[in-house]
Structure formats: structure tokens, C-alpha cells
Amino acid sequence: QLRFETNGEEQAKKVLEEAKKHNLEAHVTIENGKWVVHVK
């Protein structure tokens, strides 16, 4: 499982879109005010 700390909602959405293009499972959590994308 990969973990990407992003700078906010915009970047998190871009990472999610990329993951979906590659048929990867991804979800976002907010940790300590940071948007974190988890990709399987």
C-alpha cells in the first residue's frame, strides 16, 4: 500500500484520478490537516 501526502484537496483529487486510470484502489484520509491518498 502506497501513501501520498498531498498539499490539499486539489492535489489529492489528481492523485485519485491517476490511480483510477491505472485501475488501482485508492482512498483519501485527512491526517493532521493533510490530505493523504492511500493506494493499493
Rank of each mutant, 00 (worst) to 15 (best):
A26G: 06
R3G: 07
L24W: 13
V36P: 03
H38A: 06
E5F: 06
W35V: 08
E25A: 11
H38N: 11
N32F: 03
H22V: 06
N32Y: 02
A26V: 09
T6K: 01
E10H: 08
T6M: 10
A26T: 07
K13G: 07
H22I: 07
N7V: 12
E31Y: 01
N7D: 15
F4I: 15
F4W: 09
A19V: 11
A12C: 13
K20P: 02
H22N: 12
K20Q: 13
H27S: 12
E31M: 06
H22E: 06
L24F: 12
E17V: 07
N23Y: 11
L24T: 04
N23C: 15
E9I: 09
V15W: 14
E31K: 03
V37M: 00
E5Q: 06
H38W: 11
K13L: 14
L24Y: 11
V15K: 04
L16N: 01
Q1L: 12
Q1K: 10
L2D: 08
T29C: 15
T6H: 03
L24E: 03
K20S: 08
G8Q: 10
N32P: 00
L16V: 13
K13W: 12
N7W: 13
K14D: 06
I30C: 14
Q1G: 14
A19R: 02
G8S: 15
H22S: 09
N23S: 09
A26L: 03
W35E: 04
V36M: 02
V39I: 14
V37T: 02
E17K: 11
A26H: 02
V37Y: 00
K21P: 00
V37F: 00
L16D: 02
R3Q: 07
K14I: 13
V28E: 01
Q1E: 15
N23F: 11
Q1D: 15
A12Y: 04
N32V: 00
V15L: 15
G33R: 00
L2F: 05
L16K: 03
L24P: 04
K13Q: 14
E31P: 00
K40D: 11
E5C: 14
K20H: 13
A12G: 02
G33Y: 00
E5T: 05
E31L: 05
W35F: 11
E17G: 08
A19L: 15
L16F: 10
E18P: 00
T29F: 07
A19S: 04
Q1H: 15
H27G: 04
I30D: 03
E25T: 11
R3L: 09
E5G: 02
E31R: 03
T29Y: 06
E18W: 15
K20E: 09
Q11A: 14
N7L: 13
Q1P: 09
K34M: 11
H27M: 12
K34F: 08
K20N: 08
N23P: 01
H22T: 04
N32S: 03
V28T: 05
N32R: 01
A12V: 06
E17P: 00
V28K: 02
Q11M: 13
W35K: 03
E10A: 12
K40H: 13
H27N: 09
V37P: 02
V28N: 00
E31V: 07
L16P: 00
N7R: 08
H22L: 12
N7K: 10
K40T: 15
K20A: 14
K34Q: 12
V37I: 08
A12N: 00
V36A: 01
K13V: 09
G8W: 09
V36S: 00
V36I: 14
K34P: 00
K34R: 11
K40M: 13
T6R: 01
T29A: 07
R3T: 10
H27A: 08
E18K: 13
R3P: 04
K20I: 13
G33E: 05
L2N: 09
V39Y: 02
N32K: 06
K21A: 12
E17H: 09
L24S: 05
L16M: 14
E9Y: 12
H27E: 10
L24Q: 07
H38S: 10
K20R: 14
K13S: 10
N7A: 14
T29D: 09
F4D: 04
L2Q: 12
Q1S: 14
T6W: 01
I30L: 10
V28F: 04
N7P: 08
H27R: 10
N32Q: 03
E17F: 05
T29Q: 08
A26Y: 05
E31S: 04
K40Y: 10
R3M: 09
H22G: 06
E5K: 01
E18H: 15
K40A: 12
V36D: 01
V15A: 06
K14R: 14
V15R: 03
E10W: 08
W35Q: 03
N23I: 02
E18M: 15
W35R: 03
W35N: 04
Q1N: 14
L24M: 12
V36K: 00
V15E: 03
Q1R: 13
K20F: 13
A12D: 01
K40G: 13
N7G: 10
N23D: 10
E18N: 12
E10T: 08
H38F: 07
K13R: 14
H38Y: 15
E17I: 09
K34Y: 10
H27W: 15
L16H: 03
I30Q: 11
T6E: 05
R3S: 09
E9G: 04
A12L: 07
L2K: 10
I30A: 04
V37S: 01
G8C: 15
K40S: 14
I30P: 01
E18I: 15
N23M: 07
A12E: 01
V15H: 05
E18F: 15
A12F: 03
G33I: 00
W35D: 04
H38V: 15
Q1F: 15
L16Y: 11
E31A: 05
H22F: 07
K34W: 06
R3I: 12
E25H: 12
I30R: 09
Q11T: 09
H22Y: 07
T6N: 03
Q11K: 05
G33K: 01
V37L: 00
R3W: 07
W35T: 06
V39E: 02
K21H: 10
L24G: 03
E9A: 09
Q11W: 07
T6V: 15
V36E: 04
E10R: 05
T29P: 00
A12Q: 01
K14N: 08
F4Q: 04
G8L: 10
A12I: 04
E10K: 08
E31W: 01
E25D: 11
N32I: 00
N23G: 15
H22R: 14
K40W: 08
K13N: 14
V37A: 01
G8P: 01
L16R: 02
Q1W: 15
L24D: 03
E5I: 13
E10L: 08
E10Q: 10
E10V: 08
G8A: 08
V37Q: 00
V39S: 01
K13I: 13
L2H: 14
E5N: 02
K34E: 05
I30E: 07
K20Y: 11
E18Q: 13
L2M: 12
K14E: 10
T6I: 07
E18S: 13
V39Q: 00
K14G: 06
F4S: 05
E31D: 06
L24H: 08
K13E: 07
K13T: 10
E25N: 09
F4P: 03
L24A: 06
L16S: 04
K21L: 11
T29V: 09
G33A: 01
E9H: 05
F4V: 14
Q11C: 15
V39N: 00
R3K: 07
Q1C: 15
E17A: 14
H27T: 14
K34D: 05
V37D: 05
E17D: 13
G33L: 01
E10P: 06
K40F: 10
E31G: 02
F4N: 04
A19I: 10
G33M: 01
K34H: 11
K21G: 05
K40P: 07
K20V: 10
V28M: 12
A12W: 04
A26K: 00
L2R: 12
R3D: 08
E25Y: 06
E17T: 10
V39H: 00
A19M: 14
V28S: 03
V36L: 03
E25P: 08
H38C: 12
L2P: 04
E31Q: 06
K40N: 14
Q11I: 07
K14M: 11
G8M: 11
T29E: 10
K21N: 10
V37K: 01
